[in-house]
Design a protein around this nucleic acid. Structure first.
Lengths: 121, 121
DNA sequence: CGTAGGCATCGACAACAATCAATGTTACCG
DNA sequence: CGGTAACATTGATTGTTGTCGATGCCTACG
C-alpha cells in the first residue's frame, strides 16, 4: 500500500510528465476543431476581405453589389471576385444574383460565432 | 427649384452612385484598422497556433512550457518555437524564462478583444 | 441579333508562410 | 570546466496565397 492509492488517477499520470509541466484545468481544443477554426480565421485574415465584410455590413439593407466594392477598394475586379468567393465558401457571405448584378449579404451570426469561439479558447 | 432641395444631402450624393448601390447605414472599417485586425487574425489562423493557445489556456496556472507543447503537437521543436514567436509578436502570449525553461502564458483579454472586434464588423 | 456592361473564371507570377535539419545560446549539474 | 538539456535562430525548401491581365458567360437593351 503506497500513497499513490490515495491520489486521484490524474496525479498518477502526471508522474510521467516532465518536471516543468503543471496540471491541466481542462482539455485543450481537439485537432479537428483547431483545423476548422483556423480555416474560418484564414478566410477573415485579409484586409481586403475584412473591408468587404464591413462595407456589406454598413449598407442599410445589409447588401452590397460588386460595384460598391470596386468603388471603395483599390483592387481589380477579378481580385475582388476572388475575395468574395473565399468569403462565400467560408460561410460568411451569401450571393444573390438579380439581373446583371450580384448582391452579397452577410450570413447572420457567422462573425459573432467565430468571435465567441475565439474568446472561449 | 427642384425636388433635390427637399432631399437630405446624402441622397444628393447618392445620385452619383451606381444604380445597383444602396444607402449606407454607417461608415465601413478604415483601411488601417482592417490591416491591423488582419494582422492579428493571421497570427491566429493556424491550427498549430490555436492548439498552442488552447493548451496554454487549459493549464491550471495558465502557463505552459515548450515541452508541454512538443509532447502534444506532432511538430518539431523549431516549428513550435516559430509559432510561439508569432503569437508573442502578435500580442497573444508572453514569455517568461525561468532557468532552463521558457514558460508561455496568455495575454489576458487579447483573444476576447479580437473576438469582440470581429463581432462588431 | 448584335453590342455593351457586370461579374466569374483561368492562367501566371510574385510574395509569403509553414516546416525541418543543423546550429547556436544559455543555464544547470557533476 | 565539460557535458547535457531546453530552447532559439538560421537557412533552405516547399506549399500556399494575393494579385492582375485576359477571357468567358450571362443579361439587358437597342
Amino acid at each position: 500500500m503506497t500513497i499513490a492509492h490515495f491520489l486521484p488517477l490524474t496525479d498518477i499520470s502526471q508522474a510521467d510528465a516532465a518536471a516543468c509541466s503543471s496540471p491541466l484545468a481542462r482539455e485543450a481544443i481537439a485537432a479537428e476543431r483547431a483545423d476548422a477554426l483556423a480555416h474560418s480565421l484564414k478566410a477573415l485574415a485579409d484586409p481586403a476581405r475584412l473591408r468587404i465584410l464591413s462595407i456589406v455590413s454598413a449598407h442599410a439593407d445589409q447588401e452590397a453589389c460588386v460595384c460598391d466594392l470596386t468603388d471603395q477598394l483599390t483592387l481589380s475586379q477579378p481580385t475582388i471576385s476572388h475575395h468574395l468567393k473565399v468569403l462565400v465558401e467560408a460561410g460568411f457571405l451569401i450571393r444573390a444574383k438579380r439581373g446583371t448584378w450580384s448582391y452579397y449579404s452577410l450570413v447572420p451570426g457567422s462573425l459573432t460565432a467565430v468571435g465567441a469561439v475565439l474568446a472561449a479558447i
